[in-house]
Design a protein around this nucleic acid. Structure first.
Lengths: 199, 199
DNA sequence: TATGATTCGGAGCAGTGCTCCGGATCATAA
DNA sequence: TTATGATCCGGAGCACTGCTCCGAATCATA
């Protein structure tokens, strides 16, 4: 039988999950979304497995690390943000486009407590599953920044990482002290004012 | 004996620890300082007890909560910062005094990883042992802010909590991404620029 | 030196992340 | 339809965490 069907026996790159596996994967994701919303990105994985009526091993097989699970939860949001940046890149108002994108980014980071920290961690950790999709979004956003700088609206001595870090830092403030949530827009305006180029 | 010496027999507010207790307390603090420097504010308390050659119960008796231990580690720094704010309050340059204080605050928060988060937590948690000493420092700093605002150098629509949150957020950035440590002063300048009053 | 209050130390409980593998489940071929 | 074998599941188990509790050791005092 060695020569029978070498091609069909070849390692499949996307192995078409078995029916039960597919079901479990989706249940885990659905439950994870709820639990992470409740407990933040540091939610108990055991709890997620329990509430998904799935063994702990099953969860770890589908999502080997916590970041892998987060990535599955967030990929859609990242792609949406990247697309948003792309769309805003066609806009005629560079500064306003950047502001609109950052508002979106900061608002998105508020979805899960601890998300800002997770995103910051991807800056240095190239191995993180979150790194790729997050970096893609950051690079798309980089265009908006450069355009606003070229238009003379944003000071030239900042880069995309600076702005990304500041945006996450603002999200973090609300994470830590929910009582400051009402100040978020105000603090954002202050930071934007600091980023503005002076003549 | 009721009338003998009611005062000396009265409940002692600071119960003069026993000799061995005093020794242990100091050893724990010394070790904790090292371990927290290594592992951050989330350091393993068991590890601290082990390295202090002390039982876990002993550690918990002297410091019932993690915050209590942190408070003991930080009280001196808080007092120093409060005194610094007081001293700078006499200065003739309100804006420069505020900047100097904030630089000191941010630099201090860099001592332990996670410290910025711990300080932010005290804003809402009045029960935290850190709350009192931290609030004292904040109020001392409040004067510096008001003076800079009265001098027309800082915009009037921010309060002490806003500035405190922004300062901690800057410390947090370095916490999360040590690679951005070199940008800290730059990011601080940007935020200060945002806080500056425009004519 | 004996007594009694203080303090110590770590066993124990419930939780966490993560690994590993015997057994159940599914797809497929007969 | 049934048997076979690859795939996937589930949870016991390990090492760690924070925290409590109480018998035993230690200290101060009479």
């Amino acid at each position: 039988m060695p020569g029978e069907s070498p091609d069909t026996a070849a390692p499949k790159t996307s192995p078409e999950l078995r029916a039960d596996a597919r079901r479990n994967r989706e249940r885990i994701l659905a439950v994870a979304r709820v639990v992470v919303e409740e407990q933040g990105t540091e939610a108990s994985l055991r709890d997620i497995a329990r509430r998904a009526q799935v063994g702990l091993g099953t969860l770890y097989r589908h999502f080997p690390t916590r970041e892998a699970l987060l990535e599955a939860l967030l990929r859609q949001s990242f792609d949406r943000l990247a697309a948003r940046a792309q769309a805003l890149g066609e806009s005629e108002a560079p500064y306003e486009a950047l502001v609109a994108f950052l508002e979106d980014l900061i608002g998105g980071a508020a979805a899960y407590r601890g998300l800002a920290a997770s995103m910051m961690a991807t800056i240095n950790d190239e191995e993180s599953p979150l790194h790729a999709s997050c970096a893609a979004m950051r690079s798309a956003a980089g265009h908006l920044l450069e355009r606003a700088q070229a238009a003379g609206r944003i000071r030239a001595d900042v880069d995309g990482t600076d702005v990304f870090a500041l945006a996450n830092a603002l999200s973090w403030i609300t994470d830590q002290a929910p009582s400051l949530a009402s100040r978020r827009d105000h603090l954002f305006a202050i930071v934007m004012s600091g980023l503005t180029a002076r003549s």
